[in-house]
Design a protein around this nucleic acid. Structure first.
Lengths: 143, 143
DNA sequence: ATGTATGCAAAACATTTGCACCTGG
DNA sequence: CCAGGTGCAAATGTTTTGCATACAT
């Protein structure tokens, strides 16, 4: 139950927060912008403010419920923190996001950080490429 | 000579552009924000506008002279495109940036993209950690 | 009740753009 | 000379904040 996630994070269980978590659960695309969340909820007839979305996302992130990504494009993208760590590959044409995990890369990262005298805390690895999905080829999201 | 870089890029050789390139060359920190470049040049007595800095950076990037990074923090960071590709490790306390290159990681990335049906175009890998430099330990750049 | 959350509007940033004036080739 | 470049100010887009009201516990 999402209410429990919120309580565990020391946050009050409110309608906007629950709606946001539900949206993350059922959305086809696991990677959402604040604006997208706001619109989806408005369209679904919910009464919510954009500021609330941002505030909740920041709190969710602090609580580890959600991860904030800075892909290209000037806006942050949020993703529900379900399951184990993974990195991303983003289609430069249609914006589609796939996830992957590669233990050998993770291992090398740890070795590199150690060699350079850093105590590794986190990392971001994002690949950018052209996906081969039908209907993609640079139609949507034309930069 | 930097003038030649500009001419090769089809850009006119102007004072602001030369000053910016010079700054990149001599700056101790190879990774600069637009704002930082603007301030440095102003402090050095140059007459320059922030808009010009942004315009030039965008052109430099298009010409491959410079790379734009999106580290954490809401602002872009620019780096002179000298030498071969590399990735970054950033100190979460003092913001210090180190560069590294790891062929086995590069190799794995290519394999992953191929497996997922993407034509790899680019990637970003940034590690975040605590560096062991004297005088760091979270004094400056406290978030 | 009471400390948190919320919505709205205004503010704060980073970045871009319109425009009249300059300038390199 | 004149297309391209520049500075300034205003516009943009995203995210944050102030404040009075509403709600969870």
């Amino acid at each position: 139950m999402e209410s429990q996630d919120l309580r565990n994070a020391g946050l009050k269980v409110t309608a906007p927060r629950l709606k946001m978590l539900e949206l993350f659960e059922k959305a086809q695309d696991r990677h959402l912008t604040a604006e997208a969340i706001y619109r989806h909820l408005l369209d679904a007839g919910e009464e919510i403010g954009l500021a609330t979305v941002y505030r909740a996302l920041t709190q969710f992130e602090a609580a580890g419920l959600v991860t904030r990504h800075h892909f290209e494009g000037g806006h942050a993208v949020f993703e529900l923190e379900r399951g184990p760590h993974h990195d991303h590959i983003v289609c430069v044409h249609c914006g589609r996001v796939e996830e992957f995990y590669d233990e050998s890369i993770e291992k090398r990262q740890r070795a590199i950080a150690e060699k350079l005298g850093f105590n590794l805390r986190d990392h971001t690895l994002t690949l950018y490429g052209e996906c081969n999905k039908p209907g993609c080829k640079g139609e949507k999201n034309a930069r």
